[in-house]
Amino acid sequence: MNSNHRILFAGDPHGNFEPLIKAVRKCRPEAVVLLGDYDLERPLECYLEPIIGLTEIWWIAGNHDFQSPGKYHNLFHSSLADNSLHLRVQEIAGVRIAGLGGIFLGRVWYPPGRPKWINKRHFLNSQKPGPRDDSLSLKYQSAIWHDEFEALKGLKADILVTHEAPSSHRFGFAAIGDLAAAMGARNIFHGHLHENYSNTIRRHIRVVGVADQTVSDLAGNLVDVDDE
């Protein structure tokens, strides 16, 4: 087996998982990592049934996964819910992979600006008096929170997977590169912006952008599924 195929990274499916399924059948990876924006009308496992048992399946969430209660429930209450990489490091096929789902939201934190809130509790306590729901709305759950981001810096990883892009992309954020550097990660794979590219940012960190409905291997090469 091609060693670069032992882990595959899937760009935003937006409801179409066929390229990922074909890539798994072709490459037989040990694991796949999904980079967010699933647009699920059914639980995630329903879409991935053809490859469940063939490979490990890991994921982070994108902004689309918080657009409605249904999309949220079909991801976060699916049978694959425990395979979220958000704010954790997991050894996968011998590689330490860290995950950061969600997006930067101006009403919470939009680097390089200062965060609006210390943490989620600070935000909830600031709401107007009256009957208070002690949970965050889906919009706020989609946000990257500064305190959680900083805590992730204390962990070590080889690869960082994110929905947002680092500064390698014109719409990216230097903070993502700072996070990878703090964690000792040499590679970043991200989705969200629907572009395939490879670039290098400071500290010689390699960045791979994975476009929607495409699949990349560990070397940043696109998997050709047309002949699968």
Results as ranks from 00 to 15, higher is better:
residue 1 M to T: 08
residue 3 S to R: 03
residue 6 R to G: 02
residue 6 R to Q: 12
residue 8 L to W: 06
residue 8 L to V: 02
residue 9 F to Q: 01
residue 9 F to R: 00
residue 10 A to L: 03
residue 10 A to K: 01
residue 13 P to S: 04
residue 13 P to W: 00
residue 14 H to I: 01
residue 14 H to D: 01
residue 15 G to C: 03
residue 18 E to P: 00
residue 20 L to A: 01
residue 21 I to P: 00
residue 21 I to K: 00
residue 24 V to D: 08
residue 25 R to W: 10
residue 28 R to I: 05
residue 28 R to A: 10
residue 37 D to E: 07
residue 41 E to A: 14
residue 44 L to Y: 07
residue 47 Y to R: 00
residue 50 P to V: 09
residue 52 I to S: 07
residue 59 W to P: 01
residue 64 H to P: 03
residue 66 F to G: 05
residue 69 P to N: 14
residue 70 G to Y: 10
residue 75 L to T: 04
residue 77 H to P: 02
residue 78 S to W: 01
residue 78 S to G: 07
residue 79 S to T: 11
residue 81 A to F: 07
residue 82 D to T: 03
residue 85 L to Q: 02
residue 85 L to C: 02
residue 87 L to G: 05
residue 89 V to P: 05
residue 90 Q to M: 04
residue 96 R to E: 11
residue 97 I to N: 03
residue 99 G to C: 11
residue 101 G to S: 11
residue 105 L to Y: 10
residue 106 G to P: 08
residue 106 G to M: 05
residue 107 R to I: 06
residue 110 Y to M: 07
residue 111 P to H: 14
residue 113 G to T: 09
residue 114 R to E: 15
residue 115 P to Y: 10
residue 117 W to E: 09
residue 120 K to L: 08
residue 121 R to W: 11
residue 122 H to S: 14
residue 124 L to E: 14
residue 126 S to Q: 11
residue 126 S to K: 10
residue 126 S to W: 12
residue 126 S to G: 11
residue 127 Q to D: 05
residue 127 Q to H: 08
residue 128 K to A: 15
residue 129 P to K: 13
residue 133 D to T: 15
residue 133 D to N: 14
residue 133 D to W: 15
residue 138 L to V: 14
residue 140 Y to D: 07
residue 141 Q to I: 14
residue 143 A to Y: 02
residue 144 I to T: 03
residue 145 W to D: 00
residue 147 D to P: 01
residue 149 F to M: 10
residue 149 F to W: 15
residue 150 E to Q: 13
residue 151 A to C: 10
residue 151 A to F: 09
residue 151 A to L: 13
residue 152 L to T: 06
residue 155 L to M: 12
residue 156 K to H: 15
residue 158 D to E: 15
residue 159 I to P: 02
residue 162 T to E: 01
residue 163 H to W: 11
residue 163 H to I: 12
residue 163 H to P: 09
residue 164 E to R: 03
residue 165 A to V: 07
residue 166 P to N: 09
residue 171 F to Y: 12
residue 173 F to N: 04
residue 181 A to W: 06
residue 181 A to R: 07
residue 183 M to R: 02
residue 187 N to E: 14
residue 188 I to G: 08
residue 189 F to P: 01
residue 191 G to L: 02
residue 193 L to H: 15
residue 194 H to E: 14
residue 194 H to R: 10
residue 195 E to Q: 13
residue 195 E to H: 10
residue 196 N to L: 11
residue 199 N to T: 08
residue 200 T to I: 15
residue 200 T to G: 04
residue 202 R to I: 00
residue 204 H to C: 13
residue 206 R to H: 12
residue 208 V to C: 09
residue 209 G to S: 13
residue 211 A to W: 02
residue 212 D to Y: 06
residue 212 D to V: 00
residue 215 V to C: 10
residue 216 S to Y: 06
residue 217 D to G: 08
residue 217 D to N: 13
residue 217 D to P: 04
residue 217 D to A: 11
residue 218 L to G: 05
residue 218 L to A: 08
residue 219 A to M: 07
residue 220 G to Y: 13
residue 222 L to Q: 14
residue 224 D to W: 12
residue 225 V to G: 05
residue 226 D to L: 14
residue 226 D to P: 00
residue 227 D to N: 15
